[in-house]
Design a protein around this nucleic acid. Structure first.
Length: 675
DNA sequence: CTACCTGTGG
């Protein structure tokens, strides 16, 4: 930062100098033409005018009369500052060096290559590669290692590999570079293969190699191999190396062993921000949202300065927790911080507010975001989709196109789910078909959205035809969508077929069995219900319990099915009974579940499952004034029940299904208006 | 020269 200030200061004076000599000439002309021409820094105005002063004058001979020295100076300084921020890089300096005829050597080139990686400028990297070749540095290991890394950072793994393969004398850094090249480009298995090859060449990993290898094991969720790397770390006496601790914490968190990750973290008592970030995101990604937020708060209380990654991870935790109170607190914190201009932070905030039920606040953040990238736009569109606001999503999509931003595949998932929730079949179909106009290949999820869309609308045959014509092999989510549509519309034959496909793909998922069982129950085929129960028993599956959470006055209340542990339990059950009767009176009986209500063991489970969310809603109705919006989340309890404490904020929660959350907003609104 | 933590979808 200090360096930056010095450069700015320098610019101030050179700016005045230039403005004197050019009498208000619009300097931004230079900036623009230069930015437009991709020729990286053929001219470098104002950086060192004492070396090449003429360069500034050649591009624009048209002097604009008037303007004045001061204004000219101010304009210059402003643009110079922008210019400095955008332009002064090792790359520009390198180009400049090329122009002055000073050749690079094997000490400058690695730095230049590092910069190529950082800015992910592939073409420039190619050019440098050419220079390296011409100047005969192909044999220099340092330079070649740099090339491998630069290509990897530009996502050109092939080029990286070619350079590596041609490398005669490989050092440990060469091997590490190619290994990390593969992990960075999402190919951890190939990375580990190369690691094994390296070991068979009797080369020992250094600590950075270990960081890469551990992160590869984390990527493929191989805790066993990860643990042996951990013992390797200890054997080599590297366990106090912060970067290795970070890699290990990531590994354990990624594999679901959050407590191991936490104990590693606690042992360090570090002030390393990245390690704190790792811990926060580790908690957040495991659904331990409150723990994540607590770590963040502890960080603040220790006067450690969070960076933008810290706040992004904490916002993610708030979003998953679904607690409006925490979300608001975080929002206020960001508002006062320097991070509100960060695109990553903005998109995380938009997502958070949408998931916590306030799409309007999400929109406010969206509107306040100056530079909107595709993720910001998509987050907002997805947010509208979550709330079933299809028209808002579609309108925003047109605005996005007007702003010249091209959609990506996630944008379309947002649009399609929005149409799903709003039941806009034809609109969704049209949107799906328009994907090819943007050169976006529909992926599995897009097809699943369409099947869901058609299925929910009752067009089951059309959905099935669609599946048959798909260019990809239908997977779990597609058959799942079809099965659930079959359950709604009681199409046994097609449902059985989908279930067959589904169970062969994913035999250990309880949800599929339950769906099939409910389908049978809805047409009173009790033999089918029994058969499914046997199937489940064979596989040793039991139906896991649903659990709902509601926040009232900043306190989280959790209800399990048939739960009587809440202090106001009696009241809640009484009210629930009363509402149920009134709902029935009004003919508002739950649709498919009604068929299940009169008989059978399975049915009870099914209705009980809904119970937990009903209990939460009833409690919300009892304890808030009329007109309050209730926000209920489904909680997936993969943690033991002892961690769950009703009427108390609890630590280990995971919001299970975002989709059902949206439909719950709708249900709650309906009940609220009815009562 | 090589590495670790961040945002939308599932």
């Amino acid at each position: 930062m200090d360096y930056f200030k010095i450069v700015l200061f320098f610019f101030f004076f050179t700016g005045i100098l230039i403005s004197r000599s050019t009498a208000g000439r619009p300097v931004y002309m230079n900036v623009r033409t230069e930015m437009e021409s991709k020729e990286a820094g053929k001219e470098l105005p104002a950086l060192a005018p004492d070396v090449e002063p003429e360069k500034h004058h050649h591009s624009s001979d048209k002097s604009v009369a008037g303007g004045g020295v001061i204004i000219g100076g101010l304009v210059t300084v402003t643009f110079a500052a922008v210019y400095c921020y955008i332009r002064v890089t090792p790359i520009t300096l390198y180009t400049r060096m090329q122009n002055t005829g000073v050749g690079p050597d094997c000490f400058t080139l690695p730095h230049v290559l590092k910069a190529c990686g950082g800015a992910a400028v592939f073409e420039f990297g190619r050019a440098v590669h050419g220079h390296i070749f011409r100047r005969g540095f192909e044999a220099d290991v340092f330079v070649q290692n740099g090339l491998v890394a630069a290509y990897a950072k530009c996502g050109r793994i092939r080029y990286a590999r070619v350079v590596f393969e041609k490398l005669g004398d490989r050092t440990i850094v060469s091997w590490t570079s190619i290994i990390s090249a593969y992990t960075q480009n999402g190919q951890p298995i190939e990375a580990l293969r190369i690691f094994k090859k390296m070991r068979s060449n009797d080369l020992h990993p250094d600590w950075i190699t270990l960081v890469c290898v551990i992160s590869a094991y984390a990527d493929i969720d191989d805790l066993g191999q990860g643990k042996s790397s951990h013992s390797c770390v200890i054997k080599m006496g590297l366990e106090s190396e912060p970067d290795l601790q970070i890699a290990l914490i990531t590994l354990y968190a990624k594999c679901g062993h959050v407590m191991t990750a936490k104990s590693l973290f606690d042992e360090t008592e570090t002030s390393n921000v990245i390690m704190w970030n790792t811990m926060i995101s580790g908690f957040a990604k495991n659904g331990c949202c409150i723990e994540a937020i607590r770590v963040f708060q502890r960080m603040l209380s220790k006067n450690l300065k969070p960076d933008s990654v810290t706040v992004c991870s904490t916002i993610l935790a708030c979003a998953q927790l679904g607690s409006l109170k925490e979300a608001r607190k975080m929002g206020d914190y960001i508002d006062k911080s320097e991070y509100k201009a960060d695109v990553f932070v903005s998109s995380a905030l938009i997502d958070m507010y949408a998931k916590c039920g306030i799409v309007e606040l999400a929109r406010k953040v969206f509107d306040q975001t100056k530079t909107k990238d595709i993720v910001v736009w998509s987050s907002m569109i997805v947010g509208y989709g979550l709330h079933g606001k299809a028209h808002e999503a579609i309108n925003l999509f047109s605005l996005m196109k007007q702003a010249g931003m091209g959609p990506n595949d996630v944008t379309f998932i947002g649009l399609l789910t929005a149409c799903n929730h709003a039941g806009l079949v034809e609109e969704g179909w049209r949107i799906f078909n328009s994907m090819k106009d943007y050169n976006i290949e529909p992926r599995h999820q897009h097809y699943a959205c369409v099947v869901d869309l058609l299925g929910r609308a009752g067009c089951l045959d059309r959905a099935y035809e669609f599946i048959k014509k798909m260019p990809i092999k239908p997977g779990v989510s597609i058959w799942g969508a079809l099965l659930s549509a079959c359950r709604i519309y009681r199409r046994v034959a097609l449902g059985e077929y989908s279930a067959q496909q589904l169970l062969s793909l994913d035999p250990y998922n309880t949800g599929h069995y339950v769906q099939l069982s409910n389908l049978y129950a809805s047409v009173r085929m009790w033999s089918g219900v029994a058969r499914v129960r046997v199937l489940m028993k064979e596989k040793g599956l039991t139906k896991d319990m649903g659990c709902s959470m509601i926040e009232v006055n900043g306190k989280i209340h959790v209800f399990r099915m048939g739960d009587k542990s809440h202090p106001r339990s009696n009241e809640i059950f009484k009210e629930h009974k009363r509402l149920d009767a009134r709902l029935k009176e009004a003919g508002l009986v739950a649709d498919t579940e009604s068929a299940l209500h009169d008989l059978s063991y399975e049915d009870k489970e099914e209705s009980i499952c809904n119970h937990s969310e009903r209990l939460a809603i009833v409690y919300g109705l009892l304890s808030t004034p009329f007109g309050t919006t209730l926000r209920v989340s489904l909680v997936d309890l993969k943690f033991p029940a002892k961690w769950l404490k009703v009427n108390k904020v609890f630590s280990y929660s995971k919001v299970a299904e975002k989709k059902s959350k949206a439909s719950m907003f709708a249900d709650t609104a309906a009940i609220n208006s009815f009562v």
